[in-house]
Amino acid sequence: MIVAEQKPMAEIKELVAPYKKVLILGCGTCVKTCFAGGEDEVAVMASALRLAFKVDGKEIHVEEQTVERQCEDEFIQESAPAIARNEAVLSLACGAGVQAMARRFKSTPLLPGVNTTFIGVLEKPGLFTEECSGCGDCKLAVFGGICPFTRCAKKLLNGPCGGSQNGKCEVSAETDCAWHLIIERLTALGQMDNLRTYIPPKNWRASLAAGPRRLFREDHVI
């Protein structure tokens, strides 16, 4: 999932300050799962903003709505009536959701309420960890299903650095050493031979070379 976290209230207050009527629009998919922008977070944000503005002696009218997915036009259409009633939208979706909204609603200011952070998983209750960099050329089969491009702080591809200690990365004692995990898992799978072959430096052309990427599925177009 896309993992995001809510921006500090001070920043959000500053973003919405020029407007008197604001729609807080949540997204019911990734950001809901990471407690940043689902229905519950929209309700809390609405209440917190009303209180914050009251403290400042100002008034704000806040409307709440959450759509299933803000990154898909079909789902964002349903927010059109609410958008027409408001001067701006505070979107609690990821950056893709905010931009999908901006694409459709050309004359409405779109304000991001969260910082989109990474592609990751819920590792245990309350802890989300980054797992994939969306590199466009997945090599997880070689590395036993653990991504060194993303999870090794130095993006090493041919074994651990000297800082790997007791399974932890030298960069942070809280972070597992990706290479420790890779070797553990390849050993368990009987695939340590994977590491006997030279793994060339990562070719980032599939992700960073030519601006924003496009994926066109001709078979889905009539």
């Binding site: 500090p8 209230m9 207050k13 809390v44 917190a48 209180l51 914050a52 403290v55 400042d56």
Partner: peptide, 8 residues
């Protein structure tokens, strides 16, 4: 902490 953040 949220109340502190919004000055309440």
């Amino acid at each position: 902490s949220l109340l502190d953040e919004i000055g309440m």
